[in-house]
Amino acid sequence: MRTSEPNKVSRFDVLLSNRSFQLSLGLYSFVGLFWIVGTLLVPHGPEDIHDQFVLTRPNSQFLLGTDHLGRDQFSRLASAIPYAIAMSGAGVLIGALFGSVLGISAAYIGRTYEKTIVILTNVLLGLPSIMLAILVVGVLGPGRTKTILAVSLIYIPEFARLGRSLTGHLKSSGFVIASRLMGHGPVWILRLHIISNFRPSFFVLVAISLSTSLLSITALSFLGLGVVPPETDLGNMLSLSLEYVSLAPWLFLGPSAIIVILVVAANFLGDSLSKTVDARQTV
């Protein structure tokens, strides 16, 4: 006989005791601290131009130096952080919600609607994700919102596929048939049974996608297609720093370190979340 966690309280306990989760929490806290210090404690604004201090080394006045326009690197970096996290989260959530609706409804409604969605999903999945995003962003043009939309396109087919296969499976499961026998209609079954069994896999996929989302957004900005100056993004800060690598090599360290930390944190988060759900799954 299997035993599993009896109620929701200990689900969180398991999560909290997971090493990966703790690590990720720690990393996010560090980044959060960085952001707070950079925005509140540093006297300079991220956009402030200090003509006399172009490309200076890190010193007591500018903790991470200044860029080619004389802007303080530290505060710029700090200001980019919340955008990075928010944009990657938004990209995943939009794609996840939209895709899940498409997938679940496809399995539910069936017939031509489902067939169309299957074909569309396969086509979209047939393209490497970066390319899809590049194309969309290229067409729509640069900008924060458009970048989010472009990235969400990556996750729509993935979640649609998940939603469809799970729902298809669930439709023939015993408790759904029993529910029909009790006289409940498709809406009831959807809300009570389908959603409840979809939720765990949904969250796992979301967690895993957070890191790729951040990577894609940063990559797009790095290529000059996502978020472009004058708006700040970790990606375009990085590409900028490469341009001046011979004159001011220290500019490179900040963006790359923050990027790596954020991606690592997201990876650990996804890893720990998927492990937690896995243990509860029925074999």
Partner: peptide
């Protein structure tokens, strides 16, 4: 654990790092 870290370093950072070190 380290694998996860390795995985996390994005291509442009790696590339940029190499450019950085090699150019200097």
């Amino acid at each position: 654990t380290n694998l996860i870290v390795l995985l996390s370093v994005p291509s442009f950072v790696v590339g940029a790092l190499l450019v950085f070190f090699s150019s200097r």
